[in-house]
């Protein structure tokens, strides 16, 4: 099969930046002094030395009353209670699953915080513990919500809602967590026939529209027999490429930015969307569209 292969010199690299230069806040870099007075509370990303408050990461300052923190623009996921995350099961232990959520420590999903098939009020027996691998095994992807944060920073997840649970057929895209815009809902059914889960931990799940009508399955269904039509698969692939383009140019990811990018991308074929020039073009026009829609 003849195939066009694109190779280019490093000097022909495409500039993917979509920078808008307006009101840039003060930037702090590690070791830089934030304040000489000690009437401040030291927050994340700062430390105190010789009575001076210094930044320990590169980022912008956030001030809440007298609490000063510096937030890096790129880091691992720091979970907060109530966040929607997408994670991968990496270990099955007694009474718990270990889940990789791109956090600094592995998260846990306790068997007591999942809805087992057969109703919410079912008692968890020793038998359930033996059956754990049947529900979720290593490598499975799940969507979940952060239930609590332990003192060492690791997260405890729960899937006690029909929205959450095991993920079936779809595509996973990983971006860095701060690119995901925090919004009211992270589950989106796009009109083009694709569902999106924008995990706050930077894991994005793209799948065909799910209709959660079956009851009492507790989110453990994974129908791999169901055939996804080619058109839907092409749309999913296009959405994935759009997200990659946006992530490369560091455009915030949320429902409207992704829909705009999808609309902008329709003039290109699926394969073309992976070319750097095209990715930059899609990101740039999305960014412009976003600004336009905000000013209106």
């Amino acid at each position: 099969m003849p195939q066009k292969i694109q190779m280019r010199l490093a000097s022909n690299r495409v500039d993917t930046s979509v920078v808008i230069n307006r009101d840039i806040p003060a930037i702090y870099t590690p070791g830089q002094i934030i304040s000489n007075q000690n009437e401040f509370l030291r927050g994340h990303g700062t430390y105190e030395e010789n009575g001076q408050l210094k930044a320990s990461v590169a980022g912008v300052r956030e001030k809440v009353d007298i609490l000063i923190s510096v937030r890096p623009l790129k880091s691992r996921y720091h979970g907060k209670v109530g966040d929607v995350v997408v994670g991968r099961i990496i270990e099955v232990q007694q009474k718990r699953w270990k889940v990789n959520t791109n956090s600094i420590l592995d998260s846990v999903l306790l068997i007591s915080s999942v809805n087992l098939p057969g109703g919410e009020l079912r008692r968890r027996s020793a038998e359930d513990e033996h059956m754990m691998r049947k529900y979720l095994q290593e490598g499975d992807l799940i969507s979940a919500e952060v239930q609590s944060v332990y003192s060492d920073g690791s997260l405890s997840l729960h899937t006690r809602s029909l929205k959450y649970g095991k993920l079936g057929q779809g595509v996973l895209v990983k971006v860095f967590p701060s690119l995901i815009k925090i919004s009211k809902t992270h589950f989106h059914n796009l009109s083009i026939g694709v569902s999106l889960i924008l995990g706050t931990n930077g894991f994005i799940w793209i799948c065909p529209i799910i209709n959660n009508t079956e009851e009492n399955v507790g989110g453990f269904v994974q129908n791999l027999e169901e055939v996804v039509p080619k058109s839907i698969r092409a749309t999913m692939a296009r959405i994935r490429n759009c997200i990659l383009a946006l992530a490369q140019s560091k455009v915030m990811l949320f429902d409207s930015s992704i829909t705009y990018a999808y609309e902008e991308s329709t003039k290109y074929t699926l394969a073309e969307l992976l070319l750097p020039e095209v990715m930059a073009d899609v990101a740039l026009s999305t960014q412009q569209k976003l600004i336009l829609s905000e000013t209106e």
Binding site: I27, V60, S178, M252
Partner: peptide
Amino acid sequence: LDVTVSNNVKEIGSSTRWGNMT
């Protein structure tokens, strides 16, 4: 290095339009 780092922060920041920042 410091110049590079702050330019990089500015670039990411303004691309994301300082999203999620308060």
